[in-house]
Nucleic acid binder design. Sequence first.
DNA 1: TGGTGCAATACAGTTACCTCA
DNA 2: CATGAGGTAACTGTATTGCAC
Length: 308
Amino acid sequence: MPAEMELALSLGDPSTKMSGVGGTAGSAAGGMRPSIGLKIGFCVGIQSGEEEEDDGGGRERSRGFPWAAQNKNLEISTAAVFDVNEAPSQEEAEEGATTSSPNSAASCFNNTEFTDGGRGSAAAAPAFTEPDRSLTWRASDEEENGGARKKLRLSKDQSAFLEESFKEHNTLNPKQKLLLAKQLNLRPRQVEVWFQNRRARTKLKQTEVDCEYLKRCCETLREENRRLQKELAELRALKASPPFFMQLPATTLSMCPACERVSSNSGSAGTSHPQPAMEKNRTLFPKPRIFPFARSPPAAVHHHSAAS
DNA sequence: TGGTGCAATACAGTTACCTCA
DNA sequence: CATGAGGTAACTGTATTGCAC
């Protein structure tokens, strides 16, 4: 599975930390559809009655998000409103329509109550700080534009909240999505899209890191190659001008790439088909194996011990 | 038990919009 | 003010998985 491959590539990007955890619980292990029975509890300032769904909630804990602490209404109102076992409210009914057709453009723009609720129903909504940019909560414009898609920039607080959630696990189950949407006063589809885009960004970042690493590997190998070519040329030159002692049994010089010491090896080299030094090296010092996707090259095994 | 349809979700790629230099 | 680059929300298409029948 690609996700697992990605994990293997991880160089320690903090954002991939949860991939191991969330991935196990969600898409990586069970396939694309995250199971309800996640191993990870998810409780963002809310005492949910659904904790049995969290397998005992080993990591179940209250999240100390700024506004959750500042605004107790958030916890109260959310806990009061959010009950997955309740008959769906109008909003949830719309959510049902949304999730049943996640790709429907209409699902994103037909929710006037929700989008407007960001401003209109502030009493029940979390008291987010005023967005730093005036673009947030302009969804009502969409209605005036006849459904043309408008970009709604999330506020800093909303982004921070989503980031925190993403650190916990980079995939969402439906309950978590609903809960987040409620708390952030966003549409569930927006939360879903945000997580998708966030995963894409993480992956992109990781790819860049991998690329840099491979570049360094390549440069190192290039240098090594230059060094060996030079060494080969020197040895050939040495062979081309045989001094007087060439009457003696041939001595093969070889250099250990690990300790970079030249060692002599006299003996059978003087027989019918003397093996070039580099050819011998090839057997003495097998080509280092390259693991391009490994985070760090495998520990070098010194030939003295490896040969034994 | 295997096949099929459906819903839900993930991901890659793309588009559209916004911000900023 | 115009503009291009970069960031990102949102969309589209496709693949995969689990479940019901």
